[in-house]
Simulated assay, not measured.
Amino acid sequence: MNQPVVTIVVPCYNEEEVLGETTRQLTYLMEDLETDRWIHPQSRILFVDDGSKDGTWELIEKESLVNGFVTGLKLSRNAGHQNALLAGLMEAKDFSDCVISIDADLQDDIGVIRDFILKYKEGCEIVYGVRKRRDSDTFFKRVTANGFYGFMKKIGIDLIPNHADFRLMSKRALVELCRYEESNPFLRGIIPLIGMKTANVYYDRKERLAGETKYPLKKMLAFAADGITSFSIVPIRFVTVIGVMAVCLSMLTGAYTMVHKIVGNTAAGWSSLMVSIWFIGGLQLMGIGVIGEYIGKIFREVKRRPKYSIETSLNLNKVGNKPKEREENELPVVSRY
C-alpha cells in the first residue's frame, strides 16, 4: 500500500498532434512519483489506440521502445471512447493496484494525481476528479452541461457533477466493474453504482494542448441521450404522460365542439382540424422514437457482441521493466504540470 503499482490509462483517437507532449508530461510525473516513493517501479502508462487513422499508434510503438513506463493497446477498430477506456481499465487491473484514467489532451490537471494516490492510501476505492468551475467553457456549453446534470439528478441518475472520466479506481473497484456487462457502457453512471468508499479531488481544467476536440455538439448530444436511456425509463413515462394529457385535451375539445353543435353554432373549420392532426401525429412519432431507442438498446444487449477487439498489445505482460535511461537531449524541458 505504501508503494502501489499505478497504471495511467489514456484512451487515444487521432491524437498524433498532442501525444508527444502528453507522453513527456506523464513521464515526468511518473518519474517524480517513483523518485518520491509514492508509486512502485512497476507502474506504467497505458495508451489505448481506439482505431486511430493518423500516426497515433506508430508514436505509441516508438515511445514504448525508449520509455519503460509506456505500454500500448491497439483496438482493431474504433469502438468509441467509453469502450476504449473500458478496454484499458480491464487490461490494467490484472497488473495494477489502482488505475487512473485521463484523456490524451491533458485538459485535466495531472498535478492532482498525487492527491488521487493520497486518497487511495487513506482507503478510498474510487477517487473522482471534479472541475471547480466551468469558466473556460462557452456560455452554451456551460448552460447545457449544468442542465444535463440537473436533469439527470431529477430523474434519479446518480452522477458526479462536473466529473468526466478523470478518476482513480482500485483493483477491487475494477473487479466489481467487471460485473456490469452493458454493451454500451456509460461509465460516469455505472461507477457511482459500485459504491465503496469514494472521495472528490477538485481542480481547474486547462485548455487543450493541441488538435481538435473529439466531442463536437453532435457527439455530446448522442452521449447525453445514451446516458439518459441507459439508466432511466423516465423518458418513456414522460411520453406516456404527454399522451394521456393529449387524450384529455382531445376529449375536452370534443365536448366543446358538441356543445357548440347542440346550441346551433358552426364548428371551427379546417385549420383547427389540421392543427389537431399534426399535434397528435407529432406526439405519436415522438413516442415511437423514444420507444425505438429503448428497443434498439435491448437489441444490442441481447446479441452480447464483444464491446471491443484487441489487435495488438505492447509490453503488457512484462513485469518490472524499469524506465530506460534517456540522454538529456531526448527529454525536452516542459512544464511538468
Results as ranks from 00 to 15, higher is better:
residue 297 K to V: 02
residue 86 L to Y: 09
residue 266 T to C: 09
residue 212 E to Q: 15
residue 211 G to Q: 03
residue 279 F to T: 08
residue 177 L to M: 04
residue 291 I to K: 05
residue 275 V to M: 14
residue 65 L to R: 12
residue 10 V to L: 06
residue 66 V to T: 13
residue 194 I to T: 03
residue 59 L to W: 04
residue 143 V to F: 15
residue 290 V to G: 06
residue 109 D to H: 04
residue 299 F to C: 13
residue 117 I to W: 10
residue 6 V to W: 02
residue 20 G to C: 09
residue 292 G to F: 03
residue 52 S to H: 00
residue 119 K to W: 02
residue 94 D to S: 14
residue 115 D to P: 00
residue 251 M to Y: 12
residue 232 S to V: 03
residue 324 K to A: 13
residue 170 S to G: 06
residue 332 P to M: 06
residue 29 L to D: 06
residue 158 D to G: 10
residue 19 L to H: 01
residue 293 E to V: 08
residue 144 T to A: 09
residue 60 I to V: 13
residue 81 H to N: 02
residue 239 V to Q: 12
residue 167 R to W: 00
residue 45 I to F: 05
residue 15 E to P: 01
residue 147 G to F: 08
residue 207 E to Y: 11
residue 67 N to P: 03
residue 46 L to K: 01
residue 176 E to N: 07
residue 58 E to D: 13
residue 199 A to N: 04
residue 72 G to Q: 05
residue 220 M to S: 12
residue 147 G to L: 04
residue 253 T to S: 12
residue 109 D to F: 04
residue 104 A to R: 04
residue 292 G to P: 02
residue 65 L to S: 10
residue 94 D to V: 11
residue 81 H to G: 00
residue 110 I to C: 03
residue 2 N to Y: 10
residue 294 Y to H: 08
residue 318 K to A: 09
residue 84 A to S: 06
residue 145 A to Q: 14
residue 129 G to L: 05
residue 216 P to R: 02
residue 96 S to N: 10
residue 214 K to D: 04
residue 219 K to M: 15
residue 173 A to R: 00
residue 80 G to D: 03
residue 89 L to H: 02
residue 331 L to C: 10
residue 17 E to A: 12
residue 234 V to E: 04
residue 197 K to E: 08
residue 55 G to W: 02
residue 290 V to M: 09
residue 204 D to K: 04
residue 187 L to N: 03
residue 271 S to T: 14
residue 194 I to N: 03
residue 64 S to R: 01
residue 202 Y to T: 03
residue 147 G to M: 08
residue 8 I to R: 00
residue 226 D to L: 08
residue 307 K to C: 06
residue 225 A to V: 08
residue 303 K to S: 15
residue 176 E to K: 13
residue 75 L to Q: 01
residue 160 I to T: 13
residue 76 S to Q: 05
residue 278 W to Q: 12
residue 60 I to R: 00
residue 200 N to R: 07
residue 41 P to G: 03
residue 131 R to T: 01
residue 314 L to D: 04
residue 222 A to Y: 09
residue 314 L to T: 08
residue 198 T to I: 06
residue 301 E to M: 06
residue 144 T to F: 11
residue 319 V to N: 15
residue 108 D to T: 08
residue 120 Y to I: 05
residue 148 F to R: 07
residue 285 L to K: 11
residue 163 H to Q: 08
residue 41 P to T: 02
residue 24 R to L: 06
residue 261 K to T: 12
residue 323 P to S: 11
residue 319 V to C: 14
residue 141 K to T: 14
residue 110 I to N: 02
residue 160 I to N: 09
residue 180 Y to H: 15
residue 164 A to L: 11
residue 200 N to T: 04
residue 221 L to W: 07
residue 309 S to M: 15
residue 30 M to H: 01
residue 69 F to R: 10
residue 168 L to T: 00
residue 274 M to T: 13
residue 146 N to A: 08
residue 201 V to W: 00
residue 127 V to A: 01
residue 293 E to K: 11
residue 66 V to C: 12
residue 70 V to K: 03
residue 335 S to M: 15
residue 139 F to C: 13
residue 109 D to A: 05
residue 330 E to F: 04
residue 259 V to Y: 14
residue 282 G to K: 02
residue 242 I to P: 09
residue 229 T to C: 12
residue 130 V to N: 07
residue 196 M to P: 01
residue 149 Y to R: 00
residue 206 K to W: 09
residue 117 I to R: 09
residue 310 I to H: 01
residue 239 V to R: 05
residue 51 G to Q: 02
residue 212 E to V: 13
residue 110 I to A: 01
residue 256 Y to Q: 11
residue 21 E to M: 15
residue 67 N to D: 07
